[in-house]
């Protein structure tokens, strides 16, 4: 009970200011390390300020002091009761070579599911085109894919000039930004209990299956591989990783067989989601450049063997990276 409010505020003000100073320092210097004595003092000040707030709670006077103490208590509470590790500094190389592949492996079940859904789409798209060639007009959204593959190949192989002269950078940027947007969308649709992510992956699979079967049936498999492989071996897995992120989000939302609350489940996966989506972004930057500068050029400008070889090397490195990178550190941590 406060007998003399003015005296109470005067006495306690120095403790509130001290706490405010520590909190300000915390926020300015996230790397700040406290000694055990400083931690004790911080805790004491938090408790003292909380007690002041409790005393003033039923008091009608000094609404500004009341609000000030509420804010101070809230800020201190956020720091004292936080148990999650605060990533103060990002080590880019460590993140890329350890965190990203480790996260991928930790959530690999969602990746398998993402791949399975896409594969079902591929089979569906392949069947649709092989049994009903007219369905191409509905399935394939791109005008240049709706014509005859043989005619396109003949046309492309006649070119000896650089048809993309002066627009390659723009093209690379468009591929990067467009694909990244689509992937963020695929990931974000996980919030629809995974339904949106599944639809997007399935549809992506349909397009891929329809194009592949269309070119195979037209006996243009070599052209298809040389056209798609240089960028596709990175781009397609990137979409699958985005689907993986979306399914991880959906899994946390649904929470099958898990007793933790929705909040806890979301907290547990938040860092993994961000890691995966950043990884996807990096993959699209690479794929964008390759698609613009290599994939769009065909024989006689670029030999098919070179393009297919490049695709094989990229794909092998990607598999190696996702399956092996960061394993040693993983074992050490375990």
């Amino acid at each position: 009970m406060i007998i003399n409010l003015q005296k109470f505020i005067k006495n306690e003000n120095k403790y509130w200011k001290e706490l405010e100073g520590i909190l300000g320092k915390f926020e300015r210097e996230p790397d700040m390390q406290m000694t055990i004595e400083q931690v004790k003092r911080f805790h004491y000040l938090y408790q003292r300020t909380s007690a002041s707030l409790a005393k003033l709670m039923t008091y009608s006077a000094e609404p500004e002091i009341h609000q000030y103490l509420e804010t101070l208590t809230a800020r201190a509470y956020g720091n004292i009761h936080e148990i999650r590790k605060q990533p103060h500094r990002l080590y880019v190389l460590k993140w890329f070579f350890q965190t990203l592949p480790q996260t991928f492996r930790r959530q690999v079940k969602a990746f398998y599911l993402s791949t399975a859904i896409t594969m079902i789409g591929v089979i569906f798209g392949g069947f649709a085109v092989s049994f009903d060639p007219d369905s191409k007009a509905i399935i394939l959204p791109f005008q240049h894919l709706q014509g005859s593959p043989s005619e396109r190949v003949a046309e492309e192989e006649l070119r000896v000039d650089d048809r993309l002269q002066g627009v390659k950078m723009r093209g690379a940027t468009w591929y990067m930004t467009h694909n990244t947007k689509v992937s963020i969308f695929v990931m974000a649709l996980g919030i629809t209990w995974g339904f949106g992510t599944i639809v997007m992956l399935f549809y992506n699979g349909i397009i891929l299956g329809a194009v592949t079967l269309d070119y195979i049936l037209a006996t243009q498999t070599k052209f298809l591989m040389a056209w798609l492989m240089p960028h596709g071996v990175i781009e397609i897995p990137a979409v699958l990783l985005a689907g993986q992120a979306g399914l991880v989000l959906a899994g946390a939302l649904i929470g099958w067989g898990r007793r933790s609350s929705l909040r806890m489940r979301m907290r547990e996966i938040s860092t993994d989601l961000i890691t995966l989506i950043f990884g996807v972004g990096i993959m699209f930057v690479w794929a964008g450049f390759v698609e613009s500068f290599i994939s769009q050029y065909h024989e006689p400008i670029l030999p098919y063997s070179f393009k297919i070889g490049l695709g094989i090397v990229e794909f092998s490195l990607l598999i190696l990276f996702l399956s092996r990178a960061g394993r040693k550190e993983e074992k050490e941590d375990a």
Binding site: A74, Y77, G78, N79, H81, E82, R84, Q86, P87, K181, I184, F185, M187, A188, L189, I191, T192, G196, R263, S270, T271, L273, I274, I277
Partner: peptide, 22 residues
């Protein structure tokens, strides 16, 4: 703010901004 009044993490900011797409 964090729903429990805790410190806002970078991953939380990222997720809420990326989900703007939906």
């Amino acid at each position: 703010m964090d729903v429990q009044g805790l410190r806002l993490h970078f991953s939380q900011i990222m997720i809420r901004n990326l989900l703007r797409f939906v």
